[in-house]
Amino acid sequence: MQDNPDIGAAPPVWTRLRFEARAAAADEPTMASYIDAAILSHDTICRALAFHMAEKLAGPEMGAQQVRHVVANAYDLNPDLVEAAEADMQAVLERDPACRGLLQPFLFFKGFLALQTYRVANHLWRQGRETLAFHFQSRASELFGVDIHPAAQIGRGVMLDHATDITIGETAIVGDNCSLLHGVTLGGTGKEVGDRHPKIGKGVLLSVGAKVLGNITIGDEAKVAAGSVVLKDVHARCTVAGVPAKPVGQQPCCEPARNMDQSIPDDTTA
């Protein structure tokens, strides 16, 4: 079934994206041709995403048509990928004060595009197509400055804000509705093998330059302050800061990833 907005059957994200695309094409004629090619000429958001991602990810190894076929096939086989993309766009719109609509993350925000590239790579990884999955990981790293292993597990409604230098390792898990700012690393602590990367709960805020290392757990709605190095488990709704990071208090409010509140509580508790 097609989600054509002209017959009233489209989900809200696709309807709004097309509306914004029409307005942007009228306001900026120099971009009108690409906006039409990337969005307005398609009947579904999955086809639009496949086209735009292919234009971004194409290179000497794989042309745009090949990439587009791979991405479109992934979306056809796994509709959850499209639902996750919609949730990711909504997350950016809700949390980033610089974002004026859905068109910006869709066309321009490299955090969103890197995350969608990872989602396709993860789908390929689960199909056993590891070489192609690694290719997509490599392209995302080259183009967007974001290095996410295709075997990592990332929930939906996630925002990679600015995104440069975000690194997420092979056995890392990131829950739904998290926000990761630039310079975040979810890494190991050495040459150990097996399950060696962090497990991030739901609604967690990882601020600028936070380094979370080892097979540790960050509880739901916790907050890691900018520049912190986390080497031990963090309780749910706790704020940690420092090198090495230590608890500096409970959250004064819930959902730090949604609120993007990076302040440190005054009332410290160890």
Results as ranks from 00 to 15, higher is better:
A9Q: 11
G203C: 06
A10Y: 00
D176P: 03
A74H: 05
Q66S: 09
E94K: 12
E255Y: 02
G169Q: 13
S41V: 09
G175Q: 03
I39R: 08
L113Q: 15
A236C: 10
F112G: 00
Q104K: 02
A21V: 11
H162R: 06
K199N: 11
N4L: 14
G194L: 14
Q66A: 07
A74C: 14
R47Y: 00
A163H: 10
A37Q: 12
C46T: 14
A25H: 14
G169K: 11
H135R: 14
V248S: 07
C99L: 00
C238P: 00
R95V: 08
V92W: 02
K191F: 01
Q66H: 07
W14E: 13
D176K: 04
T269G: 15
I216K: 11
Q137G: 14
D27M: 10
L205I: 03
T15G: 04
T239Y: 12
V240Y: 03
R156E: 14
R22H: 11
E192Q: 12
L107Q: 02
A121F: 08
D3T: 07
D220S: 07
K199R: 14
E61M: 13
C238I: 12
S228L: 01
L40W: 08
R139H: 05
E83G: 04
I154N: 07
D161V: 02
K223W: 00
G183C: 07
T44C: 12
G111L: 05
A241N: 01
V120P: 02
P252A: 06
G183N: 07
A133W: 15
V248A: 06
L115T: 03
H149A: 12
P247N: 09
T15K: 13
N215R: 13
P105C: 07
G101K: 06
D233P: 12
C46K: 09
S228T: 13
P11Y: 00
Q153N: 09
R16Y: 05
L103S: 02
T268P: 03
G190R: 01
V82P: 04
T164S: 10
L17Q: 12
V70E: 01
G155M: 05
A114Y: 05
E61H: 15
L40K: 01
A91M: 04
